[in-house]
Design a protein around this nucleic acid. Sequence first.
DNA 1: CTCGGTGTGTAAACAGTGTTCACATCTTGC
DNA 2: GCAAGATGTGAACACTGTTTACACACCGAG
Lengths: 201, 201
Amino acid sequence: MPRTSYHHGDLRTAAIREGFAVAETAGLEAIVAREIARSVGVSPAAVFRHFPDLEHLKAEVSRSAREKLARLMLRDLEAFGNGPLTAELARQRFERIGRRYVEFAVSSPHLFNAAFSNCGASPAREDDPSPWNILLETIHDLVATGVIAKADAELAPVAAWTAVHGMATLYTQGLKRVSGFDDDPADTVIKLIRRMLYTDS
Amino acid sequence: MPRTSYHHGDLRTAAIREGFAVAETAGLEAIVAREIARSVGVSPAAVFRHFPDLEHLKAEVSRSAREKLARLMLRDLEAFGNGPLTAELARQRFERIGRRYVEFAVSSPHLFNAAFSNCGASPAREDDPSPWNILLETIHDLVATGVIAKADAELAPVAAWTAVHGMATLYTQGLKRVSGFDDDPADTVIKLIRRMLYTDS
DNA sequence: CTCGGTGTGTAAACAGTGTTCACATCTTGC
DNA sequence: GCAAGATGTGAACACTGTTTACACACCGAG
């Protein structure tokens, strides 16, 4: 659709949104500058008024994908309300977002890959919550309520992160056809994390 | 260097070898057909007599990278000789190749990514050993010698695979700067796997 | 030994890419 | 109301993967 005015008005965010759509269905590397320009209704060169590189656009799409996962996780946490923090509540909150992480990768593999590839090139902004930070907070609560021993406070984050990220990447890389993967991968990950960290397992 | 004879003689394997070198230092996606042709001393079109696609060449490089990891793991196993299989020996063998997997990713991140990206497009050949199969065998020995309970025989492979692959990918994606990662990642992975699976932990 | 067929290499072209540049157009602050 | 800066344009450039028509080299059958 041709624009009415000479200027687009919000090309930068429109380009990111379009890039996000491409990445969702075909992956980050399927983003091509001229196609983005066409979709947005603008000449190819216009895109480079807002991004020095195509790589910078991809990096913004990557950041945007991470934000989407973070928002999903935050929404999960909000659903629990903000009553007093019991051990049981801490468990449920943590396990809900752990599941969410894996489910996100399974249901949107391209987007998940986009979110975590090249992500050194697109550091999180100061104030926006990263999936990592959200996970970290809920683990802190697990330690505070005694679900995880204080001695494991250091180990717990890397243990949980490794588990969810490992299962997620195995699924997004077509390695799902191995024994033991018949079960729901999110269930499996939670089971593994319990064994590694929970005091009562 | 210009060739002496009109025909190259072994262009296909030379191209894969050259692609491997590129992937090792700059990643799979840095492989460019014309550059490979130049390095090998041949015209750009010649490459396509041996690969229908550049993607097929990349897939062969990917398979080659997986083979390299597999060979490293096999070399580790052979170093243990083939005496009688005790529980202690089974542990050492398994933990050695688990470490190797993570160490490979840390020391050759580009090659590791190349090995496991797109790897649906380059299935392992019938007879060449995949890292996955090698890991699977050593886990079988852990069950056979009682280091892992028989009830966990199903869970163990996916648990170990998830742990090593998760830690490896976290490192190759620039996510190493998180708390708890000061320790040697291979050590950490082994510790986690022990907690998940070993009967005496 | 020859001689055709098949496998392998070449040069030139094509369509498509990221990116730049000189120029056009709009917007905005004074 | 107007200069200055931000934003969009069209044409180019260098580069890519890939194809095509042709050239050379090997190899087995006669």
